[in-house]
Structures are given as C-alpha cells and as structure tokens.
Design a protein around this nucleic acid. Structure first.
Lengths: 177, 177
DNA sequence: ACGGCAGGTTCGTTCACTGAACCCGCCACG
DNA sequence: CGTGGCGGGTTCAGTGAACGAACCTGCCGT
C-alpha cells in the first residue's frame, strides 16, 4: 500500500490497524515472507522479488527499525550485512500462513506452490497452522517447506534454492549455478 | 499498498502474493475487517474508517468484483445497496485474527481493544482464530466480539454501536444517538 | 590498472492516495 | 412548489510514493 507519512491507520483503535502500519505497505509482507523462507541478503531479496532497489532498501530499514528483522554483520572488509527475522518476525508466520491459504482458496484451480509440514511427523499443516496429527500449533522452526506441483521453472538462483525441501527460517545457502 | 496497474505480485509464484493482489492495497483489509464486524453501508464505512470517499468506492467495487463482498439491494426508491461479506470474505477471518494478535504483540503495553471469544464456551480465541478449549477452528458466525479495556471514547455512531458485545457478521443496527 | 560484485543512493516519470467540491435521486417539510 | 437534507456516489487538483535506470562506493582478484 502506498501509505502516507501520517499513517491514518493510527487513528484506528484496532490492533489490526497497528499491524498494518508496520507491514501494510507494498512489498513489506513479501519481504517478511522471504525472510522466513531463509533469504537474508539484499541481493537475494532483489533477485527473488524483482523489487526496485530503493524500495527494498527502504523496507529493510523500516522492518529493522520496527524490530521485525535484525541487521547483522556477517563479515568485515568488505562490510556485509544480512537481515535475519527476529522473534517478532517469526510471529508473523500465522498471518502469512492464513493469507497463503486464503490465496489458495481464492483460485482453487491452481495447484499449490508449496506445502508446509510438521517436520517431526511430516503431516501437512492444518487450516490454522496446526499439525493435524499432533493437534498443536507448530513452531515456525519446526515447519518443513516442500515444493508443490504448481511451481513453474525456476528462473533465478534463489528460486532454485527454494525448491529443495527445507526448514522455515533456515538460512539460504546458494550453491553457485 | 499502492499497487500499480500491472500487479507485479502476479509474477510471484506464491499464494501469499495472490492474496495480496486482492487485499494488499491500502484500506482494503480494514474495509474487510469492518465488514466482518457487521458494517454494511457506504456511509458507515466512511464514518468509521475516515477513508476518502473515492477510495472507499474503489475498494468496495474491487472487493465486490473479487467476490469478497456482495452488493445487495436492500431497498428500492431510493435505491440503496449494502455490502455483505461472502463466504470468501469470511475466509479472511483467520488472517485478520492473526494480524490483530501480532499487532497486539507488537506493542505489549497497550491494552487490548477488543477480545474475541468462542460464543458457545466463552473462551478467548487463539492465534489462528481457533478455540483454545475446544481445539477446533471456530466459524466466524460463532465468534463473539467484546470490547476491551483499551478502547477510548467512541466518537461516531458506528464506534458506539461496536462497543456492545456482538457476534461477528451480525449486521450493525444503528440506534439513533 | 582494471573489471566485477554487493549494497546501496539519486533522479525523473508515472501512478495512486487525499481532501474538498460537486452531483443525483429521493424524501420530508412548509 | 421550492427548499433542505440524506445516502451514495463522481470529479478534480495537489502530493507523495513506487518504479526503473543510472550512478556511486568500498573492496577484492588478477
């Protein structure tokens, strides 16, 4: 969303509006999604999202300021930073899961892109993110992401790396080519 | 979000991006939230959200076209329409619930504005809108909304009407003054 | 010395949001 | 019969955000 400087959402006495102040802008939620998928580097976000560079820089900064991501130096000389989700960031997983399920319900013809499973027992997550077998909410770190039949050909290295079954939150390691 | 004409989200092979194409624009989710709270009339949305008229008209139209709301004539002469959530619209409840809880987690000092309970047993809902006691997802129609301690003074008639404990989806009846 | 790469910043254009003003059909009132 | 009010919009100018391309910087390898 194009939010103005003065976030009128703030006038709303509603925690949904508060949430949208933080993650309601265009691209923001997709950045968080990628972060939970394991993307951590500026260039990887850039390649995967095809987002304008200036917008990405702005989103990473505001998410960091909000405490959703943490900017962490992973090497000096040349100085390089990565953005890793904080606990507050993981907390968006239920919302993202619910949105994803709704998006799937929205066009039921499409084959699912990815499926999410409880890593310990392998059962797919239920409609509100719980493990159907265990009957409990699953911690994001215990969620396994698997490629679904709806995925097209992977064009960039990040998409390729995200095709392998992997844990949520596990950092993305790019094998060259 | 300010989405352009060509929604680049569409390039994303992800149902979250698909969802955001529909409900990702500024104000859209708040309109849906109000619709689930029982708001149905143009003017009530206008008063409660303090949203520009043109934007509201655009959102109502696009949500109707997407099948999230249904435009329904409730009287002829003068012709008057109301917008009621469809089943697809109710399907956004888990996402809204998750977002609301996250917004509450985001600033833990604030007192909750509203709490949501399973109408049959009275227990508060969990992070995906499930009943903690029953362990099952609660149909939006069985959710009872109660005012919380964080609510300020109600300024408009819609806010006043929303202070009473009420069922989700129950149409708002405005008692004059 | 040169090219390349990660991680940005700058800049002009386009486009959506904003608020105020205006419009239309209908009703009620005097 | 005119006049005002209300619900439900549309129109319009101004502004701020998103967009994409170009540019910049620090550092490395050769």
């Amino acid at each position: 969303m194009a939010l103005g400087k003065d976030y009128d959402y703030a006038a709303q006495e509603c925690s949904i509006a508060r949430a949208l102040e933080i993650i309601g802008e265009r691209w923001t939620l997709l950045v968080v999604r990628d972060a939970l998928y394991g993307v951590r580097r500026y260039n990887d976000f850039l390649v995967h999202l095809k987002i304008p560079r200036a917008v990405l820089a702005a989103r990473l900064q505001s998410l960091t300021e909000a405490g959703v991501l943490e900017k962490r130096r992973y090497q000096e000389s040349p100085p390089r930073d990565e953005y890793v989700p904080t606990e507050l960031g993981w907390g968006l997983w239920p919302a993202l899961r619910a949105l994803g399920l709704w998006g799937r319900a929205f066009n039921p013809d499409a084959r699912p892109m990815r499926t999410f499973h409880h890593a310990e027992c392998g059962t797919e997550l239920g409609s509100y993110g719980e493990c159907r077998a265990c009957g409990r909410a699953v911690d994001p770190a215990d969620v396994e992401m698997r490629p679904g039949p709806g995925l097209g050909p992977a064009e960039d290295a990040v998409s390729r790396a995200l095709r392998a079954p992997r844990r949520l939150l596990a950092p993305l390691e790019l094998q060259p080519r």
